[in-house]
Design a protein around this nucleic acid. Sequence first.
RNA 1: GCGCUUGUAGCUCAGCUGGAUAGAGCUACGGACUUCUAAUCCGUAGGUCGGGGGUUCGAAUCCCUCCAAGCGCACCA
Length: 582
Amino acid sequence: MLINSLKCRFLSDLENVVLKNKKIDKKIDLNMDKIFKSIRLEEPKNKEFGDLTTNAAMVLSSQVKKKPMELAEEINKQILSKWKFVESVALIAPGFINFNLKDKFVFESLNKIFSEDKCYGENKSGAGKRIQIEYVSSNPTGNLHIGHGRWGVMGDVLSNIYEKNGFDVQREYYVNDYGTQAKIFAECVKSLYLKRFGIKFSYPKDGYPEKTVAVVAEKIYESYGDKFILNKDEPATNDAEMEKISIDMMLSFIRETLLSIGVEFDNWFYESSLYKNDNFEKAMKFLRENNLVYEQEDALWFKATSYGDDKDRVIVRGDGNPTYFASDIMYLMNKKERGFDFLIYILGADHHGYISRLKAIGKSIGMNSDAVNIIIGQLVRLVEGKEVLKMSRRKGKGMTLDDLIRHVGKDAVRYFFSMNSFDTHMDFDLSLAKKKSNQNPVFYVQYAHARIGSIIRKLREIDLENASEKEISEIENSSAGFCENFLLNMKKYEFKNNSERNIAWVLSLFPDIIYDACKNNAPYLVTQYLYRLSGEFHYFYNHNIIISKNKVNMIRLVLAIATKKVLKNGLDILGISAPEKM
RNA sequence: GCGCUUGUAGCUCAGCUGGAUAGAGCUACGGACUUCUAAUCCGUAGGUCGGGGGUUCGAAUCCCUCCAAGCGCACCA
């Protein structure tokens, strides 16, 4: 990591300077944590200010009782001027410290792209930590709609990012196959299934859209024939078996849809498994023994308010049936038993009421307060022109995720859903959906990758005067020999202009991006970065000739290949293909 | 009524753990292919950062208030 490690170094150096000041004036009372938190070392918004900038002098001035500019001088003198890789420093009123890094330093950072190759960008900050990310978890009573696609993609990409940061990640889908909704769904299937045999059985009034159910019923008929018919004269089936098969069938459709955009899970956790054997009784016993529940009006209540929730919650109804909240409790207890260091739930904004109750459960069963992390993603709104379309699964309205994938393809779907932060209320314009396939910035990024592929192909076609095919292959494949000699050959590879240096600079930031994306649960940072890198490359490509006649400009070729590698690594994280040709 | 999220260019969005002249893309207009892919590049235009107050060296960013949008407030799942 470039910026993040420089920042660490800067802060530790800074501590010495500050402490020195403290020795001079003992009255100074410093809150170092607070200071360090608000000190930034980052790229300035405006590139003209240099490679990096820090607000340290301004942050410190009020604490140390010195003028910012004086502090800036001091910081420059005691820290930056001692850093050998700093090229120049500028102190700007009211106290900005801007500095540039030496070309050599920037160039050296490229070495990692080749030596680490497919691992470039990774770090070990999460080593030894097991986390679980749960996402989508859509009820298996209907097709996924567009919104689910967002969580599928975001969850998948976020999982990839955590893995790149060294975490051991489990991806989990929670299947609500227990309770009323599953039963209603099964009833619907049953009705249509029986109809297939000419047996009348009324379709539930508040049932699911027939269009969806019919597909499931038909598939069951195809696969099992009359297996579930108990008696042809009466509308009877083996209900329990039927329910299980119906849910599984629907789930297999969901799985297929997700698979078609590369979203896979390590574990499909069935809600019904929570009620197997005497799990439920054990859980209730645990709650009673720990004084977490009380009885009132025949129902069993969980003392959620004692742990930060707005109200207490019923977990066992008056009729003796458990509520959904009982499942939530048992599910979290189960997750705890599985021994994760922390959990992430990705939930749609329509579930934001869950935050306090899930945290309350976590607290009540003795989990660390930061072990249960809930990411709330704002909903996708489907619009057509100015009209807002309602996406209601219960009514079978709106565009399904399958439709969308068919329209724009896997890559565009993944790019589109990973380009915004969780907090963005996305408007998805249906009439733009098709256009998106041409306008989607995913092609901009992929095109950069393909262009470089084309350069390499070109090199193989011509007789090069100043490089052998073997040499080209060595660079492309990051051979051990090339990597060893990379830094020795530096003189050969001096930056000749800004665009060469800029692209090297952006390339060197990739590991920082992976780290920041993880720290902030912000997959879109990777997407944004790839767009930036592609833009930088397209500019570079248009302004620098890499191959002229029979000669290849080696530094430029190295930069191009390095770009290709980083684009590939980044696109892999997003789960988007990196084409050699377009 | 209470709560969560959001409001930035015509459109879709960055920037929000305070920093310098608020940035991209799309759209519009004007340029660049005898030279590695023009799915590209360059340029122009476009803004009272929802309104109003406050905090300070400094506010799109933090606080208060109002307005608007989405979502949620079950012995539903």
